[in-house]
Design a protein around this nucleic acid. Structure first.
Length: 267
DNA sequence: TTCCAGGCGTATC
DNA sequence: GATACGCATGGA
């Protein structure tokens, strides 16, 4: 990974990054493609830090981005200091994973904010991606940006009716309540063993194993977590009835992302 | 009209 | 602990 400043923009050179594969593969819901066809560009946010990013010939252009924001926000968000070539090399020892990596090798795991990821994946349950985006979009309209949970203190399901989140409104309210009371402190539990974090997150109404694993994988960078949705269950039944091979386990969450995308959009 | 969507809570055995 | 069923909403 290397970058240079060009006027107000930052130009990034990095391998193993495809904006479509990374920003539009169901791990984050606040990115909109602005480019037409091969002219690939996105606008979106990490919490309330905006970004307009475009893929150009041999680099990515981060429009109107100062160096401090780039280093502190976007380098970790896009996981730019992780060598995905090396990880793919390891994973490709396995046949199905080799295909999945070749199919969409530009996927990266986005290191999102823990609260934003938790809230987003509570909304994601039994839901489709366009509607998830709609609900989160209305949440941001309601609070003039993605709210911090402290800004939602005392919120009731009725208050959230304009989101049209359906039965998920009461889950969001319970999550907000537990975070504001201090019953759960995300910054603290981040450091605990994965199993303990999962158990704590699952005390929130509407957070089961799948949502908890998404919150950990995307919001706490626990890349050993494998969110088991309907697609991954099919993958596991079909290719890994005995579970992943041992050498995959440390990167199982990343493997999951390649396989999930391959299963959903590939052949 | 019916079915389904990156699940989960609840009831029941 | 395993298995069925309802759940809000909206698009196909």
């Amino acid at each position: 990974m290397e970058y240079l400043k060009q006027g107000k923009d930052i130009l990034l050179k990095v391998s193993d990054l495809d904006l479509d594969e990374t920003l539009d593969c169901g791990q984050a819901f606040r990115w909109e493609r602005t480019g037409i066809g091969p002219d690939c560009a996105y606008r979106g946010y990490m919490l309330n830090t905006p970004l307009h990013v475009a893929a150009e010939k041999d680099h990515f252009r981060f429009y109107d981005t100062d160096e401090e924001t780039f280093i502190n926000v976007w380098v970790p968000y896009f996981d730019l200091e992780t060598d995905y070539s090396e990880i793919k090399k390891i994973l490709s020892e396995d046949a199905p994973l080799s295909k999945a990596c070749a199919y969409a090798g530009g996927i990266r795991i986005l290191r999102q904010d823990s609260w934003e990821a938790l809230c987003s994946f509570i909304i994601s349950q039994n839901n489709n991606i366009p509607r998830i985006k709609g609900i989160i979009g209305r949440l941001c309209e309601m609070y003039n940006g993605f709210p911090d949970f402290t800004g939602m203190k005392g919120v009731t399901p009725d208050d959230l009716a304009p989101l049209r989140a359906g039965f998920r409104a009461k889950y969001i309210a319970d999550c907000v309540s537990k975070l504001n009371s201090g019953e759960i402190v995300l910054e603290n539990i981040k450091e605990l063993p994965t199993e303990e974090i999962r158990k704590i997150l699952m005390t929130i109404k509407g957070v089961g194993p799948k949502v908890a694993d998404c919150a950990m994988l995307y919001g706490m960078y626990r890349i050993d977590c494998v969110p088991m949705d309907v697609w991954m269950k099919r993958v596991m039944e079909q290719f890994y009835p005995e579970g992943f091979p041992e050498f995959v386990l440390p990167y199982a969450g990343i493997a999951q992302q390649y396989l999930f995308h391959y299963m959903r959009t590939g052949t």
